[in-house]
Amino acid sequence: MALFKKNIWLIFYSLTLTAVILFLLLSYFKWQNISLKYQIAQENTVELIANATHSLFDTQERLMDVLGAAIAEEDRYVHHPSGIGKYAKALLDNPDVLAFGVTTPEGVFLYGSSDSDPARIPNLKNRPESYASFMDALSHHGMVFGRT
């Protein structure tokens, strides 16, 4: 009888240990599955936001290209830059754009939407804070993000 009692307790402890191990394994794999599901959801959200941001910047760049081409076609804006305002209005109607400026390659402002007198806006090429980003913008054919 004592041997039987000892074997029953051994079986009980073995089954309990096996059940605990299986529960822990099942919990671990379930946690991994949930973690992977949320990681994939986060990656998809980040990719969606990145694509939307890229699309927004691409749209802004195209609009600026059209406005830049229209302004560059007419030499009169170099001498009478106030007419640039009609082109800038199309860009400023977009809530994503706060200000708009046109400079010469020498860094002199021809038009600034945030200032009625562009002569008061400092030359971008002569300022140490904006020189590097201005030169970088001049060397690219697309939109460049930076101080300028």
Rank of each mutant, 00 (worst) to 15 (best):
3 L>R: 11
6 K>D: 13
8 I>M: 02
9 W>K: 08
11 I>P: 03
12 F>Q: 13
13 Y>F: 15
13 Y>A: 15
16 T>K: 03
17 L>K: 02
17 L>S: 12
18 T>M: 07
18 T>L: 06
18 T>A: 14
20 V>C: 03
22 L>F: 11
26 L>W: 05
26 L>R: 04
27 S>Y: 13
28 Y>P: 03
28 Y>I: 02
29 F>S: 11
30 K>I: 15
33 N>Y: 06
34 I>V: 07
35 S>Q: 13
35 S>D: 13
39 Q>K: 14
39 Q>G: 15
41 A>C: 04
42 Q>F: 13
43 E>W: 07
45 T>A: 06
49 I>H: 04
51 N>V: 06
52 A>C: 10
53 T>N: 13
53 T>F: 12
53 T>R: 08
56 L>H: 09
56 L>P: 12
56 L>I: 10
56 L>F: 09
57 F>S: 09
57 F>E: 07
58 D>V: 05
59 T>V: 11
62 R>C: 12
62 R>S: 14
64 M>T: 09
67 L>Q: 10
68 G>C: 03
74 E>A: 14
76 R>P: 05
81 P>L: 00
82 S>T: 10
83 G>C: 01
87 Y>D: 02
89 K>M: 05
90 A>I: 13
91 L>T: 03
92 L>M: 02
93 D>Y: 07
94 N>D: 10
95 P>F: 01
95 P>R: 00
95 P>N: 01
97 V>F: 03
97 V>H: 02
98 L>H: 10
99 A>R: 05
100 F>V: 01
105 P>K: 01
106 E>T: 06
107 G>A: 00
109 F>W: 02
110 L>I: 00
111 Y>G: 01
111 Y>W: 01
111 Y>R: 00
113 S>T: 00
115 D>K: 03
115 D>A: 08
118 P>E: 00
120 R>F: 12
120 R>H: 11
122 P>E: 02
123 N>T: 00
125 K>P: 04
126 N>S: 14
127 R>H: 13
127 R>Y: 09
129 E>R: 03
130 S>F: 04
131 Y>N: 08
